[in-house]
């Protein structure tokens, strides 16, 4: 059987990678109102750190709720209900860190209004919340492709940091509104269907290795 013809991209795709360094701020919170103030005043880099670090640090299997704010209010303050609400925020709905921050703030404010006594709960000294921000270093890798076959071969060997960069960091932190893979597949290969399928994934509910496998399977199915 003749091999399916593979379309060449109008422009090649270069894989980038990102590496993170955690910068301490010396800022801390012991109760819910203090946490709320921290979140309101923190840099976007700090909000990004506390909502995304789990993805890389617990890439194999996350034992924690998917953001530090949710984990802390649950474990340190015993606010299980608020913890659940914060953990369930659908990050994919938000296109900027600013919008995500607004949603987190609104969720905590609504909870404090409904349960004013929760403002009086304090974390013990060894469970204080420490604000940290994320410094991202972005660099090109040696991997470049002109078509989907090359794309899938590189996906198999690239680091998960690179997959993370194109799926998470580019969309939300660099405000590209979509992931880089969908952007290139639709814009340069012209394959709207595959681009749409990758765009429809909720990457926050996958481990990074599972995300890699899923995108590889989708692409291989497409190219036959």
């Amino acid at each position: 059987m003749a091999e399916k013809e593979i379309k060449t991209a109008a422009e090649p795709f270069r894989f980038y990678t990102q590496l993170h360094l955690s910068e301490l701020t010396g800022l801390r919170a012991s109760n819910l109102p203090e946490l709320l103030n921290l979140i309101k005043e923190a840099s976007d880099s700090a909000i990004y750190h506390h909502t995304h670090r789990f993805l890389l640090q617990h890439q194999y299997l996350s034992p924690e709720p998917p953001n530090d704010f949710a984990y802390w209010v649950t474990v340190a303050l015993g606010e299980d209900c608020l913890g659940e609400k914060l953990a369930s925020i659908d990050t994919m709905k938000y296109l900027t860190i600013h919008d995500l921050r607004e949603k987190i703030v609104a969720t905590i404010e609504a909870y404090l209004k409904a349960c004013p006594n929760s403002a009086k709960r304090f974390a013990s000294e060894d469970e204080v919340f420490y604000l940290i921000k994320c410094v991202s270093f972005i660099m090109p890798t040696a991997y470049v492709t002109n078509d989907l076959r090359g794309f899938v071969e590189i996906l198999k060997k690239i680091t998960i940091d690179s997959i993370y960069f194109h799926m998470f960091e580019a969309r939300l932190r660099l405000e590209r509104k979509t992931n880089d893979f969908s952007l290139w597949i639709e814009g340069m290969i012209g394959d709207k269907e595959l681009a749409g399928k990758i765009l429809k994934l909720d990457p926050y509910t996958y481990t990074l290795e599972d995300l890699r496998k899923t995108i590889i399977q989708m692409t291989e199915k497409r190219i036959g």
């Binding site: 410094v135 270093f137 972005i138 660099l174």
Partner: peptide, 11 residues
């Protein structure tokens, strides 16, 4: 980081 400013650094 000692030679770069900002929270997003392109290398």
């Amino acid at each position: 980081s000692l030679y770069c400013k900002g929270d997003v650094v392109y290398l």
